[in-house]
Amino acid sequence: MRTPEPIGGKVVVITGAARGIGAALAERLADRGARVALVGLEPEQLAAVAARCGRGAAWFECDVTSPEALAETVAGVEKRFGGVDVLVANAGIAMGSPLRLSDPDAYDRVIEVNLMGSIRTVRAFLPLLIRSRGYYLQIASLAALSPTPMITAYGASKAGVEAFALGLRTELAGHGVGAGVAYLSFTDTDMGRVAGRSGRLRLHDLDSAIGRLVSGIERRSTYVYGQRFIRLLRPVRGVMPGVVHLLGRGPAARFETSLAQAGPQASSPIGPGGRADTKARTAPDPEPSA
């Protein structure tokens, strides 16, 4: 196991930092002396998180699916901090719906934000990571290890970012840059609580998960497990599709029936983060100044 490198004084960029995992991780890292750059879509929330993180924090409003917005953010981060030591690609949204009933735009947007947003984020910050011989942590999910019905867009995107990060790890090794993937199950966040209510699921403690993420960052770990039990699933991931199919057909059919009765709004991205992304995409363009 790699010896931990103290995070104090290092610059950490976290996407999806307005709430949930991103906000909690930023606060914990700031408590340990890191300087944090918070990236997200909700200015008021980002400002509040930055205030809690102290004078070493700054925030940047950015849609991670936009290369132009990311380029501006990278320039802003470099100007404010001088470089980047750690990048945490955390931004993501989710929806729960069978493909047959899902809104196509909402379904595609989950993949666009979670997968392409992560790829574009890494591409944008990569020159700064190479310069610092830094570390990139991709936030994935238990859904990357075990296919799950009704969240197939989310699962596909998280399996995609896992494959992306682990493949990129080998590419970056020669540049001295480390890379890892973090897996989390249903955690006590805004998005987790919404998903938990719909599935009547027990949520896992947020503080414990954040502690494991911080440890993974300090050790530049290849695999980080937000909950210990997930480690046990990696060796048996080959049998998980069959198990899920066998046990999940009945619940999936019942869920589809209830969703059909709820109407199209039931397949919208869930939680405040999902609403923020929808709002950002549908907001009218500002009028040009005279």
Rank of each mutant, 00 (worst) to 15 (best):
R254H: 08
S221A: 15
D188G: 14
Y223E: 12
L203V: 05
R254N: 07
T222V: 14
V239D: 00
G192V: 07
G274Q: 14
R275S: 15
G238W: 05
R249S: 04
P288Q: 12
R197L: 02
G226F: 04
K279A: 15
F255D: 01
I217N: 08
R219N: 06
A252M: 01
L203M: 09
G192M: 03
F255W: 01
P241I: 01
A195T: 05
I217M: 09
G274I: 14
R275M: 15
R231T: 12
G196Y: 04
S221V: 04
I270C: 10
T257M: 03
A280Y: 03
L203F: 05
M191R: 14
F229T: 03
R202W: 03
D188T: 15
S215A: 15
S208K: 11
S208F: 00
T187G: 11
P269I: 12
R281N: 11
E256N: 06
L213S: 02
T222Y: 07
T222P: 05
P288R: 10
A253R: 09
A195I: 11
G226A: 09
Y225F: 15
S215C: 07
D205S: 06
P288G: 12
P264N: 01
V214D: 02
D207Y: 00
G199A: 12
L232H: 13
E256F: 04
P235A: 12
P264L: 03
F186T: 14
A283G: 10
V244Y: 03
E287C: 06
M240C: 04
R234N: 06
S268N: 15
D205Y: 01
P284R: 08
G274C: 12
S258I: 02
H204R: 11
R212M: 01
S258P: 00
S258R: 14
S208T: 10
F229V: 06
P288A: 11
L213C: 04
M240G: 00
S267L: 12
G271F: 01
P284Q: 02
V224Q: 07
H204V: 00
T189F: 03
A252V: 01
I230D: 10
A283Q: 14
Q261I: 01
A276G: 04
V214A: 10
L203P: 09
G211F: 06
L203Y: 05
H245F: 05
G192H: 06
L246A: 15
G273F: 08
T222L: 07
F255T: 02
Y223Q: 13
V236R: 02
R281S: 10
